[in-house]
């Protein structure tokens, strides 16, 4: 039996037995596979040594049935949950709007950075800047776009996880056999999290360094600290 097949069968059997924290159990067996595979065993060997998924699942205690706690019961509970859902939905819409703003800002800043780097001045919207200054400054703007990009991705993941956790919570409130609550903060796998951190720190560094550098270059090219006056940017 292959790893995925084994895990799928085990999950199925655990669900049938109404075992608590199925995901957590599966994770443990996944790690077992990972360790054994690192030692050079084949997936089939590992699965065979683990035993039958059905037999394993039978060894896990099933979740305590709390005698239909509030199952179907409590008109007021449901009414309250309904009201809570309305307010939550409003909050999520607000949060989504915020995230769209972030994403739009990231795209706009990225385009601006691209224009500066390539000195592509569409209908003279960008005030005049000599080439070198525009290039250095453009790179810093691209870094800023990176920061906004990561922020919008993070916020979106945050929103998604919050909605998931809240749906789970709502279900648990009226369900007889509650599932474990989900965390509210975004659940990235370690690799993605590390990559996002690297991108964010890199973008931050690029933005910081090139912003200062761009300021210096522009000031030198204009021969004045307030270079924007020199080229009459705000007139």
């Amino acid at each position: 039996m292959k790893k995925n097949e084994f895990l799928a069968q085990l999950k199925n059997e655990l669900k049938k037995n109404n075992a608590a924290e199925t995901e957590d159990i599966i994770l443990e067996y996944e790690q077992h596979f990972a360790f054994k595979m690192a030692d050079g065993y084949s997936e089939e060997e590992i699965a065979a040594k683990l035993g039958e998924p059905k037999a394993i699942a039978a060894q896990f205690d099933s979740a305590k049935d709390e005698g239909g706690k509030a199952a179907g019961g409590g008109f007021f509970l449901k009414l309250g949950l309904g009201f809570a859902a309305v307010f939550e939905a409003l909050f999520y819409i607000l949060f989504l709007a915020w995230d769209i703003v972030l994403a739009a800002a990231a795209i706009a800043i990225f385009v601006l950075g691209g224009c500066l780097v390539t000195t592509l001045n569409i209908s003279a919207l960008i005030p005049y800047m000599p080439f070198l200054g525009s290039l250095v400054f453009g790179i810093s703007v691209l870094g800023l776009a990176g920061i906004f990009g990561v922020a919008s991705v993070y916020c979106f993941a945050f929103l998604r996880q919050m909605i998931k956790a809240s749906v789970r919570w709502h279900k648990n409130m009226v369900s007889a056999s509650p599932l474990p609550p989900l965390p509210c903060n975004p659940q990235f796998d370690p690799k993605t999290r590390r990559r996002m951190r690297t991108v964010l720190l890199g973008a931050l560094a690029v933005f910081g360094v090139f912003f200062v550098l761009g300021f210096v270059v522009l000031a030198l090219q204009a021969g004045a600290l307030g270079f924007w006056h020199h080229w009459n940017w705000f007139v």
Partner: peptide, 26 residues
């Protein structure tokens, strides 16, 4: 960690590797 326990036990006692995790959970 879980695998360490399972690996150690199955080396000295003849059991299916899968039995240790239910015990840990219990």
């Amino acid at each position: 960690y879980g695998y360490e326990i399972s690996d150690n036990l199955s080396k000295s006692i003849d059991i299916a590797d899968g039995t240790v995790y239910p015990i840990l959970r219990k």
